[in-house]
Amino acid sequence: MGRIICCGLGPGDPDLMSVRADREVRAARHVAYFRKRGRPGVARRIVDGMLAEDVREYPMEYPVTTEVAFDSPDYVHLLAGFYDAWAERLAQLARTVDVVVLCEGDPYFYGSFMHLHSRLQGRVEIEVIAGIPGMAGCWNAVGLPIALGDDVLTVLMGTLPEDEFARRVRNSDALVIMKTGRNLMKIRRGLAAAGRLGQAWLIERGTMPGERIARLEDVENTECPYFAIVLVHGQGRRTDSVE
């Protein structure tokens, strides 16, 4: 019997992969990874130059496009069928070989692999290797502590309804806002309504090629790349030196 080994690759810079993930990737003979149709995929780019010459690759191409609303029944149906099919294929492969599945960030933190993980329970041995979450790479790129002392850190999705988003912003100290993309203007309005826009940073492609870091209030874009995070740093209890 083989195994399915999901490797968390970290935020994007190959140097931020764990030693364990690096070892598994280099030794792999069967590698699967998610990607959009017609693109190489971020996870595959991270390990470029690390794979063995005789590796067999299994690109798992998402079936949906931007023309299908993410909250529509069609979207849910398409993705469910996609994950069902790949769970079956990976389970069949893992009967005889180890399969390494690549995952950006940490697999257990909003990782796409979790949709396969739930479908594979009891069918095959699964090992998950932790990775540095993308948000950690982003706040290190800014170079400021995201939270101090008693700060409450909240992770929000830009897809939340605008009223709920603004309410949660007002009730938090430090903020990580994911799924920005086409929700960037809504995020700006919510932060402005809570008086936090001036404290917000936009990090695009954190630790990856093309990384961009800017104050959100200075950004004129109406949307941003998929791999983008908005941060609002907490101002909690500090222990600065006293004369």
Rank of each mutant, 00 (worst) to 15 (best):
R3P: 08
I4W: 04
I5P: 02
C6Y: 03
G10E: 08
G10P: 00
P14Y: 04
P14H: 10
D15G: 07
D15V: 01
R20Y: 13
A21C: 07
D22I: 14
R23E: 15
V25F: 05
V25W: 04
R26F: 10
R29S: 13
R29G: 05
R29Y: 05
A32M: 13
R35W: 02
R37C: 09
G38C: 15
R39V: 10
V42A: 14
V42L: 08
A43L: 04
A43P: 00
V47A: 09
D48S: 12
M50P: 11
L51K: 07
L51S: 07
A52H: 15
V55I: 13
V55E: 04
V55M: 06
T65M: 05
P73A: 13
Y83D: 13
Y83I: 08
D84T: 07
W86S: 08
E88Y: 09
A91D: 09
A91K: 12
Q92Y: 11
A94M: 12
T96S: 15
T96Q: 07
V97P: 06
V100D: 11
V101T: 02
V101Y: 02
L102T: 06
L102N: 03
C103K: 02
G105W: 14
D106R: 09
P107N: 05
P107I: 01
Y108S: 11
Y108V: 10
G111C: 08
S112D: 13
M114G: 15
H117W: 02
R119A: 04
Q121I: 10
Q121D: 15
V124G: 12
V124C: 06
E127C: 05
I129C: 00
I129T: 00
G137E: 00
N140S: 05
A141D: 11
A141I: 08
V142W: 01
G143F: 01
G143T: 12
P145S: 06
A147P: 02
D150T: 07
D151S: 00
V152I: 04
T154A: 01
M157V: 14
G158D: 00
L160W: 03
P161A: 01
P161R: 05
E162M: 01
A166G: 02
R168Q: 12
V169A: 03
N171G: 05
N171W: 03
S172E: 13
D173W: 01
A174V: 01
I177Y: 00
K179Q: 12
K179N: 07
T180Q: 06
R182D: 05
L184A: 14
I187T: 07
R188A: 00
R188P: 00
L191F: 02
L191D: 01
A192P: 03
A193P: 05
A193M: 06
A194T: 11
A194Y: 03
A194H: 01
G195N: 04
L197Y: 04
Q199R: 13
Q199L: 13
W201C: 08
W201V: 15
I203A: 06
I203D: 09
I203Q: 03
I203R: 10
I203N: 02
G206H: 13
G206A: 08
T207H: 01
G210Q: 09
R215N: 08
L216H: 09
T222V: 06
T222R: 09
C224F: 03
P225W: 03
Y226I: 11
Y226A: 10
F227E: 00
V230Q: 00
L231C: 08
G234F: 00
Q235G: 12
V242W: 15
V242R: 13
E243C: 08
E243K: 10
